[in-house]
């Protein structure tokens, strides 16, 4: 029994069917962690990109170093670090938040790159034209640059969203009940790992295919030139 749901080990098919609701409860946690982690990655990535673009080298260089450091070290180790070290300095977060923070931190290194590449792909002529027309920098950014940058970065960000989802099982080490953890617990208790783990694999495959199709659809719907402003 897990989450208050009993399973039935009569035969393989009945077993699979009976644990499906349990696995789906784990899936809910997986999706929650994915979305929160993605949000953190989007925000932190923005901060990092802004710092890296700073003109003062004293700000941009450490930002570059931090980005490189995050990119070159494993998520699992970063997770352990946050989970064990933060409390020693008085920062106590619920496990879920620590997990989402770790995911967000790891992927902020990637999203900051996406932002930078997206901005750089906008032709300089756009900023020049804005200056000629005497727009304020803020107006230029909000209404000229950003609407053109967004369609370019959606596919890359979408792919990272899917990647985050595939990295969520790592959070099981801090006892977060995402789908893989749930499957493992079922396996521990019934000695049948094959069915739960296989089901998790299939569910992940379906989710990834769905998410990828969703991203492709979004990509198609957004015009290449930018978000239309009437």
């Amino acid at each position: 029994m897990l989450f208050g749901i009993e399973w039935d080990t009569a035969n393989n098919w009945v077993f699979a069917w009976s644990i499906l609701p349990i696995l789906l409860k784990g899936l809910v946690v997986t999706i929650q962690a994915t979305l929160v982690g993605f949000l953190v990655a989007l925000i932190l990535g923005l901060v990092l990109a802004a710092l890296k673009g700073a003109r003062l080298r004293i700000i941009s260089w450490p930002a570059y170093f931090i980005t490189e450091f995050i990119r070159d070290t494993p998520l699992l180790v970063q997770l352990f670090f946050l989970y064990y070290v933060l409390p020693e300095y008085g920062i106590i977060l619920p496990a879920f938040m620590t997990g989402a923070l770790a995911l967000g931190l790891q992927y902020s290194a990637y999203t900051s790159e996406v932002y930078r590449a997206g901005l750089e792909s906008i032709p300089h002529g756009q900023t020049e034209a804005s200056r000629v027309l005497d727009f304020t920098p803020l107006h230029t950014f909000m209404f000229i640059i950003l609407p053109q940058a967004i369609p370019r970065i959606i596919p890359a960000l979408g792919n990272y969203l899917v990647s985050i989802m595939k990295d969520v099982p790592v959070l099981s080490v801090i006892a977060i009940l995402e789908i893989l953890n749930v499957a493992r617990i079922i396996g521990d208790r019934t000695f049948n790992y094959l069915i739960p783990l296989s089901m998790v694999g299939i569910i992940y495959l379906l989710l990834t295919l769905l998410a990828s199709a969703g991203i492709r659809y979004l990509d198609k719907r957004l015009p290449k030139e930018g978000i239309p402003l009437k």
């Binding site: 990295d167 099982p169 790992y193 783990l197 998790v200 992940y204 495959l205 990834t208």
Partner: peptide
């Protein structure tokens, strides 16, 4: 598609436990 579409940890666990 299969190995890109599923989580590495799931694959690892499956190989070792399942």
């Amino acid at each position: 598609e299969f190995f890109r579409g599923t989580s590495l940890l799931v694959q690892l666990f499956w190989l070792y436990f399942a």
